[in-house]
Design a binder for these strands. Sequence first.
DNA 1: AAGACGAAAGTGGTTGA
DNA 2: TCAACAACTTTCGTCTT
Length: 309
Amino acid sequence: MSSYVKKCPECESINLFINKEKGEVICKDCGLVVEDKLVDFEQEWREFDSEQAERKRRTGAPMSYTQYDQGLGTEVGQKLDLYKLDNKERNKFFRLRKWQYRISTAIERNLKLALAELKRVSSYLKLPKSVEEESARIYTLAVQRGLVRGRSMESVVAGSLYAACRRHEVPRTLDEISEASGIEKKEIGRTYRFITRELGISILPSNPADYIARFSSALKLSAETQSRSIEILEQAQKAELTSGRGPTGIAAAALYVSALIHGEKRTQREVADVAGVTEVTIRNRYKELLEQLDLEKEIKKTKRKRKDD
DNA sequence: AAGACGAAAGTGGTTGA
DNA sequence: TCAACAACTTTCGTCTT
């Protein structure tokens, strides 16, 4: 149940108009833009240096979603150079200030707690700052839409993190996030799907290659093995071995084969543990890889070499 | 004895009527 | 909303090194 704003906070009117093209919800009675981040909340400009950033950022205030009040303080815009902004921008500020009072207590308290939790989990997983920031933004949106109701705060945090990881192509498995946050995998998956659907965030299916680097270092494999496994993955994609399969399983199998070829054998068990799948899955993927990609020769070659030593 | 292999039954999630 | 279905897991017995 999506329960985002249904009443205009300004005049209590329920006569709201949804402009899908602009992704805005506008109150027909007083003209207030009730919600303007409906679909596209990417910033549409890029900043190459601080000077450009100054010019292009619309509010000028350094803003961080990892601060519960978004770095704005309780009194929004009090000391900013408001005269530099045109009317529209100024109105935006006044609205923000009003909102700050209106929605302050409940949401702020929630955010404060949640973002602390988010930072904790994020640093536990050693996630890059950009991902932390993104997930904080997702969480903030989720709270504003009332998506947290009926769910535990922690699970929504975990879901936001997972979504942010996927978006930034630094995938962590559900298991890892589950371990770090203490939320059940199932639950994270559920809230993840829920919030991405409700917020209209599109996620690319995760790419097995994104997992290789991490698995490979966990197994202490050489750089050659690692790059070879990426080649194998590419071939596998061409042979359409990857679609519909779990990306971690495929990554694990590619790494396993590659390790065999380079004479750095790891047991299926070891690889399976690192990748968070079972040996059986690795075996299945491994079998498919051998059948389709003609890798057996190379494995035998290194086996023979081994005997010579 | 440990690891690899494969069969069979079970689980959770997606899909399509 | 329910049943069929695919991917993956668990478990266990057998074969290989």
